[in-house]
Design a protein around this nucleic acid. Sequence first.
DNA 1: ATCCGTTCTGTAACTTGTTCTAGATTAGCG
DNA 2: CGCTAATCTAGAACAAGTTACAGAACGGAT
Lengths: 210, 210
Amino acid sequence: MGHMTSEHRPALPASHALTERQEARRRRILHASAQLAGRGGFDAVQMREVAELSNVALGTLYRYFPSKIHLLVATMQDQLQHMHATLRKRPPTESDPGARVAQTLMRAFRAMQREPHLADAMVRALTFADRSVSPEVDTVSRLTTAIILDAMGLDSAATPEQLSAVRVIEHTWHSALITWLSGRASIAQVKIDIETVCRLIELTSPQRPE
Amino acid sequence: MGHMTSEHRPALPASHALTERQEARRRRILHASAQLAGRGGFDAVQMREVAELSNVALGTLYRYFPSKIHLLVATMQDQLQHMHATLRKRPPTESDPGARVAQTLMRAFRAMQREPHLADAMVRALTFADRSVSPEVDTVSRLTTAIILDAMGLDSAATPEQLSAVRVIEHTWHSALITWLSGRASIAQVKIDIETVCRLIELTSPQRPE
DNA sequence: ATCCGTTCTGTAACTTGTTCTAGATTAGCG
DNA sequence: CGCTAATCTAGAACAAGTTACAGAACGGAT
């Protein structure tokens, strides 16, 4: 079903070359997506409904977001940017870098708890995405990394070891979220696991090498 | 679309009460599933094709496995059991528990590399599964946990801390696998991340408390 | 203002997961 | 064996993601 070869479909021009009306359309679509996801989760985001709710033809919706997965990953990107901005305003209060990261992630987690359906839709899309969505997923990943690095409060550049630890934390974050969303882990367990993985930060910090 | 309430559909009797013919059918289905997944991945496992290839009517297929996700998770369970048996035969050679786990997971990873499409289908199904598949996903999770605990070579029962570390390793394992399968991480990076997360084992072992 | 290529709309068609139904087969039992 | 309930088969039908297409609206260049 996926045509990886030459694009038979006209894609949207580069992101910065959008008309005002086009920007508004894109925004309406993302808003509709988040709204539908907010109640009902992944299944409730139906492309026909998104199109109708955002006053856009189905074909246009697919021109802006070439698949439901693309749409939901873009929605996640959007939400993450909000969250990053929010988190920047109130930086973590802990002193240890690891504790700061854990605190930040638990804040993000509480935000997810407020909108579990939305979280479900976004995270499921993110982990279900195949190669055709890699660039977009990568953007989300970079955003998450930025949030974690921010929380660490790094003065200098991170070491490769630390970057690996951050990736592992990210893995744990996504996977623990899924486990919680599908009801196989409690909030307490997620908290413990986040705190456990954040110990890797102390372990890999250059100040305490071994 | 999921009807969570009372089952309107007659389910298969408890697993141990299967006729010989039924057991054979189940096996044919799982074999067909793995075969189709082996070339083509998640998308290539089409329920009609699975039914045809295993000489079973579509309705029967759905009686044995109530959804494509259930089918693929069951396929993973099947494959994991094989892998567990294989790994038991050649236990890891390293001495440190952490290194043993890392070694075991990299072995498993190499097995995945041999059948990337199959791995793709199984792992995507696993992380996409919703609440209705929780029991089956939980079984897979327990199998994975067993493999990791085996590799650790625990003499006594694991501490809660260690169990959390094992969960985090499992999270990292799944998520890193996905990242590799969708082409966003190299094999080398997966290896590094696995080794990084396995350090948590030493960190939480009772022998070296702080 | 007019013309032209692009974008958007409305709608139908196609694909694949899932459900439904009527009739054939099977398994267990007296 | 003959009966009955459960199971299986074949195929249609339905749902939602995706694609296709004809015509309307738009935007920019002359």
